[in-house]
């Protein structure tokens, strides 16, 4: 293995990890806070990329394009939310339907399956050509997103979303419109994913209709790696999100390492799937093997209660 080549690849992995960290934060909101496995992500990341690239090709500035990418992502989340809450479609299937439908939408937006945007001709937010700058911009985006989410999930409405994901029955009994909160949560999540898609398209210099394939798995991998490595030390909500971003960075570092070991880049999806399956299995296996340690569910404390 060529250590030097691996070292040279690392900064790029960090930059990519930071952009995907925003996707992972979006996945964290649905998967962890709302307890909802949302597969729309695979489609909405591409929607964000497509909107960004097409708007910039049409002459709009990058910030406006990214803003619209976020809105487009939110619209995708809204559709998934309506599928689930108003039409009673199971969570996973709602996401799959949106994802499938978005393929056509993304093709319509782009006109063809790939649209390039050159760093020479356009004023890009970040690019693979200037990796140190891309790392800085990516880190700033992550920090701003984390700060805003930390504030939002501490507000009355943000707490209502968390309560909905934590215990829906209790939320209803406390007068919370749980359906509306689920839709809102999905919109925020997919809005972030759309934003990340816009950043990713600029970074790699193109939007591709297949750029979102397996995005949910990468997002989940980051969430799970962040949780396993930092779950014990990062208790605070904002720190947990930092852990998720670090999880995304580590994921891409591992990918770089595996590539250096001589695997084909097309093998990455298989490796990603196996990594996620492995990490998802850990808590389950711990639970079933360590049943002696599990306390009985319903029992009053003797001293206090």
């Amino acid at each position: 293995m060529d250590i030097l080549a691996f070292a040279r690849a690392l900064p790029g992995s960090v930059a990519q990890g930071l952009i995907w960290g925003i996707v992972a934060i979006g996945v964290y909101i649905t998967y962890k806070l709302l307890d909802y496995a949302d597969l729309s992500v695979d489609g909405s990341i591409c929607t964000g990329g497509a909107v960004t690239v097409m708007m910039m090709l049409a002459g709009y500035p990058a910030p406006l394009a990214l803003f619209c990418a976020t809105i487009a992502g939110m619209a995708a989340g809204f559709v998934t939310g309506i599928f689930h809450t108003a039409m009673g479609i199971p969570a996973i299937l709602s996401g799959i339907l949106t994802q499938l439908g978005l393929y056509s939408v993304n093709m319509r937006i782009m006109g063809k399956s790939n649209q390039a945007i050159s760093v020479d001709k356009f004023d890009l937010t970040l690019s693979v050509r200037y990796i140190p700058q891309a790392i800085l911009i990516g880190a700033i985006f992550c920090l701003v997103v984390i700060a805003v989410l930390y504030w939002f999930f501490g507000t009355e409405i943000g707490r209502a979303i968390r309560a909905t994901g934590n215990n829906e029955q209790m939320a209803k009994a406390q007068g919370i419109d749980t359906n509306a909160k689920k839709v809102l949560g999905l919109m925020i999540s997919n809005g972030l994913v759309g934003l990340a898609g816009g950043l990713l398209a600029q970074y790699q210099g193109n939007a591709d209709v297949n750029m979102g394939r397996g995005a949910i798995v990468i997002g989940l991998a980051a969430v799970i790696i962040g949780g396993v490595l930092f779950g014990k030390i990062f208790r605070n909500f904002s720190l947990r999100l930092v852990g998720v971003v670090i999880g995304a960075i580590l994921y891409f570092c591992v990918i770089a390492l595996v590539l250096q070991l001589g695997m084909e880049s097309t093998d990455m999806k298989l490796i990603s799937a196996l990594i996620v399956a492995l990490f998802l299995a850990v808590p389950y296996i711990k639970e079933t093997k360590g049943q002696k340690k599990v306390k009985p569910m319903v029992k009053g404390g003797e001293e206090h209660a």
């Binding site: 968390r162 309560a163 215990n167 009994a173 919370i176």
Partner: peptide, 22 residues
Amino acid sequence: HKRAQYLGRVFQDPMMGTAADM
């Protein structure tokens, strides 16, 4: 959730009335 404004509820299952992770 709309009639919750008039009603207070406590359930049989102690896990049901509170949000454990909050």
